[in-house]
């Protein structure tokens, strides 16, 4: 047993897992407040990372400025998407809504691949590259930064929903749209806000992952990795999304370890979360923290 490797992989799992958790949170945010299952979540990461990359590389902006521009762009993009594509779908059956976001996802991915190319590009260095040692394990500073970023975002989410007026409005809308509307909350604004926040935070995660692994079309696959995470956590629980993300991150790295040491099947990093997902759906369909729907005739 190679303990050092196991711990190293587990640490990576925790760091990647928090990023999954952040993206899963964005997914849950949209699902909770607008009842839309966003299959295009991964493309938000992709677009955000590429926009930031081109601002930094082609326009030679300093990181902070380019990053802020990216966030503003993604906010506008999220709102636009909600108004143009998702608003006509309100009240349609769930299959249609799922299909619209799937259509969006392949449209955006193809467009991005066309514009920016399919090869991976490295981000300009923002942090020094020296490896930092934490408790005897090697960690890249960008990874540490991403951990800090993720925790910061999660704290921000918590504060937003707990203390801000709009956060309260969003929670009310998620609880019951009609009641919220009759209390004077503009449900339209809440929907647009949910997409804007989700797009912005996803782009942030995309930039962070891009800094570590380079920007490429592989980023959109994170959007698919989110599904095991949200199902594990229960679809409508933000805390569950974070926990689910962490579990998936650790799970895939443990699977990688077991596979590399004993099984030698290959490709377990990608596939293991889906096996767990299928098993979980058979055993506990509402996840660990999800609301059990009780149906009445």
């Amino acid at each position: 047993m190679n303990w050092e490797l196991l711990f190293q992989l587990l640490l990576n799992g925790i760091i990647v897992g928090t990023l999954y958790g952040v993206v899963a949170m964005c997914f849950v945010l949209i699902y909770k407040s607008t009842q839309v299952v966003n299959f295009a979540q991964g493309e938000f990461l992709l677009i955000g990372a590429w926009v930031c990359w081109s601002l930094l590389v082609h326009w030679q902006m300093p990181f902070v400025v380019g990053f802020l521009f990216t966030l503003v762009f993604m906010m506008a993009f999220g709102v636009l998407l909600q108004i143009v594509v998702l608003r006509p779908m309100i009240g349609e059956p769930i299959i249609s809504v799922i299909m619209v976001t799937i259509g969006l996802s392949i449209f955006m991915r193809a467009a991005v691949n066309w514009i920016f190319g399919q090869s991976a590009e490295a981000f300009p260095r923002i942090f020094e590259t020296d490896v930092v040692s934490v408790l005897g394990l090697n960690v890249q500073p960008a990874y540490l930064m991403s951990l800090v970023f993720s925790l910061f975002i999660m704290a921000g989410f918590y504060a937003f929903f707990r203390y801000s007026r709009y956060g309260l409005a969003m929670r009310a809308t998620a609880f019951n749209q009609q009641v919220a509307q009759s209390l004077g909350i503009s449900v339209k604004t809440v929907f647009a806000l949910a997409w804007a926040i989700s797009a912005m935070v996803s782009a942030l995660a995309g930039v962070v992952i891009g800094m570590v692994n380079g920007v490429s079309s592989a980023l959109s696959f994170i959007g698919i990795k989110v599904f095991p995470a949200v199902i594990l956590g229960g679809l409508d629980s933000i805390v569950g999304a974070v926990v689910g993300g962490l579990i998936v991150g650790m799970l895939e790295n443990t699977a990688e370890f077991v596979d590399g040491q004993f099984l030698h099947w290959g490709n377990m990093l990608t596939i293991a979360p889906f096996w767990v997902l299928i098993l979980l759906l058979v055993l506990k369909p509402y996840g660990l923290f999800g609301t059990k729907t009780i149906e009445r005739v």
Binding site: V85, P88, M89, E92, S96, M99, V100, I102, G103, L104, S105, I106, F107, M108, R109, A110, A111, W114
Partner: peptide, 14 residues
């Protein structure tokens, strides 16, 4: 081609 597939799905649904 891929964009057209995505766009066709979205436009038909709307």
């Amino acid at each position: 081609r891929e964009m057209a597939i995505g766009a066709a799905i979205i436009l038909f649904l709307i």
